[in-house]
Design a protein around this nucleic acid. Sequence first.
DNA 1: GCTATAATTGAACAATTGTTCAAATAAATA
DNA 2: TATTTATTTGAACAATTGTTCAATTATAGC
Lengths: 196, 196
Amino acid sequence: MKYDRAQAIQKATGLFWKLGFQGTKMRDLQEHLDMRPGSIYAGFGSKELLFKEALNLYTEQSIQQVRHYAHQYDNALTALYEFVKDQVIGSSAETSDSQKPNNCFLVKTVAELNNSHAEISLWAQIGLEKVEEEFAEVFKLAQTQGHLEQHANSLRLAKWLQVQIMGLRAYGQLKITKDEMIKMLDEMFSSLPKAT
Amino acid sequence: MKYDRAQAIQKATGLFWKLGFQGTKMRDLQEHLDMRPGSIYAGFGSKELLFKEALNLYTEQSIQQVRHYAHQYDNALTALYEFVKDQVIGSSAETSDSQKPNNCFLVKTVAELNNSHAEISLWAQIGLEKVEEEFAEVFKLAQTQGHLEQHANSLRLAKWLQVQIMGLRAYGQLKITKDEMIKMLDEMFSSLPKAT
DNA sequence: GCTATAATTGAACAATTGTTCAAATAAATA
DNA sequence: TATTTATTTGAACAATTGTTCAATTATAGC
């Protein structure tokens, strides 16, 4: 029976995310996907191509998640807050029993490969840019909703949010309680130029 | 002639920092240190032990750097600002011609190895804690200098600073200008509870 | 200078790596 | 059902990995 391509990529993403590109061996993938090497190579071409599929999936799912939160809340700023909280709280070492790694797959990939596999790193960077654009859209939405100051620069805020998420998720790998994480998160969002 | 141990560790640190633990091959080290495998193993025992030496050196140098800035400026907050600027500006993709990688070696190590080499990752985490303690000391110094509000929580501020540095350095790997980086940095420090 | 100790050398090893491909099996078409 | 096409299988390969160690060279003590 033909393998389920979408499911295979999903599983591969989880493994690559956890172990990194170089840390994930083809034999790990074979076991985790329950596929023999020939099938993997017939279906994806190479470890690198499969990794790029994983980056694409992760990026697409991140964007969808942002949009999901944006539609879920009347206040787009609240939506962003809840999105970040979701990403970051699964990111406190406290709840490390969860399956998903704490850090961002894209950031981790850039860190790992920027000085040795420039092309893959660029792939991840493009993903981060797409997510950032999505953040900017949501900030603009917050402005039309009247929750964010009209003269606020949504592009700049999107950059700011990326930096904050990267920082929190990286820090979330260390020993820190969920409460402390949320406290920092609250402080961050309280500094946003909310409309009066 | 006996090799220069300190210099060897320094060089190894640079390579590990750039390529990561798994990305750095023993043959890369042999070339970069100009040492034969037997010498490296006689001197350091294994790739992993040499890597830990690198983590220690990086940690120690980071702490020394913080102290250096703290003594250089009358205002400890200014010192921290200049320290972070130094770390982060070498971190904008604009100046990627520089030798040193943009991100933090300790953060990069935790990201790479947290799910596969727990012991090494812990080593890096301990380094990060030491640096954070140093930040807290400098914030306390700022209080005795009268530059920081007396009731400010130095431990909390140290955590906050770690998050900001992690975020900025991670973001600094992407396409962004030095000016934009400094602008974000200025905003961050302007949010500190300065004494009036 | 002679010996004893310390350090370096580099060829070699066993294990692991990403990948291939002929054979086997399943699915589709008739 | 028979035949063609699509897919999976897993043993095998060449390259690379971290590491070892007997031989060689340098250093130190006398």
